[in-house]
């Protein structure tokens, strides 16, 4: 049985997928995950999830973000003047990164 493994590096951070292990049950999966994924990289917590229990949807199944031009929903579209609050600047820069990652113009 295959178990997908998610590692959280520090308390409060997100568990992110880091690989999988072969194990007959949940307890063994946890032990194998600790050995294979928890030893070298910083690890606060690991989740193991049976692969069959993971639902997946991909870009082939659905158009993530839609099929039309949605530039109106990004901060980067609006040209305002004067210094912005730091959290607005941060949000806009995260949006600009996401825009690049999605490959939008």
């Amino acid at each position: 049985m295959i178990w997908e493994v998610f590692r959280q590096e520090q308390a409060g951070e997100y568990h992110t997928h880091c690989g999988n292990v072969h194990a007959p049950d949940r307890e063994m999966a946890k032990q194998f995950a600790a050995v294979q994924h928890g030893r070298r990289k910083p690890t606060n917590s690991l989740w193991v999830v049976p692969r069959d229990e993971v639902g997946e949807i991909t870009g082939d199944d659905v158009a993530f973000g839609g099929t039309t031009d949605k530039s109106y929903r990004w901060a980067t579209t609006y040209r305002t003047t004067g210094a912005d609050a730091s959290e607005v600047v941060e949000s806009e820069s995260e949006q600009a990164d996401a825009e690049q990652g999605r490959g939008d113009d």
Binding site: Y72, R73, W74, T77, T80, T81, V88, E90, S91
Partner: peptide, 22 residues
Amino acid sequence: HAMDKVCFEEGFHVKHGEDILQ
């Protein structure tokens, strides 16, 4: 964690609101 996503999206709201004001 909810705030991470909210703050990511909220920049658009503020900038759009500011654009209307402008």
